[in-house]
Design a protein around this nucleic acid. Sequence first.
DNA 1: TTAACTGCAAACTATTTGCAACGCG
DNA 2: CGCGTTGCAAATAGTTTGCAGTTAA
Lengths: 138, 138
Amino acid sequence: MLDAGYAEQALKAKGMRITPQRRAILAYLDGNEQHPRIDEIAQHVQHEMPGVALSTIYNNVHDLVDLGLITELSEKDGIHLDPEMEPHAHLHCSSCGKIVDVSLDQTIESDIVKAAKLSGMKPRKVSVDMEGLCPSCA
Amino acid sequence: MLDAGYAEQALKAKGMRITPQRRAILAYLDGNEQHPRIDEIAQHVQHEMPGVALSTIYNNVHDLVDLGLITELSEKDGIHLDPEMEPHAHLHCSSCGKIVDVSLDQTIESDIVKAAKLSGMKPRKVSVDMEGLCPSCA
DNA sequence: TTAACTGCAAACTATTTGCAACGCG
DNA sequence: CGCGTTGCAAATAGTTTGCAGTTAA
């Protein structure tokens, strides 16, 4: 989960400015257990700060991704942002559309990496995604 | 890997027609070990059959996905099609951009499914994707 | 024969870009 | 005060849709 305070430190460290728009975006992501899409972030931010351009949201989200503070998930229904950086899997619910986190045993990920290395690859990042029913829909 | 003959059977069984355009698309996918994007399919098909509309390619690819003959992969650089239906992982090479298959031990996938079920979910499909370097770039 | 399919063009949606004005540090 | 950032609008890219004409079965 994203920590807005830490994120601002990271921004400053990179010589980036703490603008009200950024603060609003960070505030929305901080404590957000969901996996919002760009338009959901935009909706929230623009609600409490009208006039913010969509391109500004895109700019800032990309900046946060570059800083490694959040992760981009490309799902069929569009790009989702994941404020959680701990390794975990995702399940995209085919009933309600939500994306829920699944905690994975650490050994599973290393087994996957091992398999890839056996084939001569150098994996840098592993992501496990599922499609099915979430706990509330199952 | 897709078998064009089997695919035609499946099409007929669903009351769908075997059109020259479909045959050309199937021929391109049959034996293709890569993960082509729509535009690559279009390029090939249109090369040996000029005049084929892009929308026709989209129509047919969607039909094939619906029939379960191929899989859609949403990567950051666009949609790729995967003619291989056996369970396997993908590694998206950050150097050459190719997507290569990684064979996974069957137990890994079932471990993932097990973990999801522990959290109360009903996973229907698991996909493992990596980002890193492929064998030729590593 | 006829319902499915194709080709074309226009419509859409999501994302990116260029640039002048703004404002954080 | 200067440079990163913002907001706007226009540009782009990828995909979808509507429909009249075509064609596989």
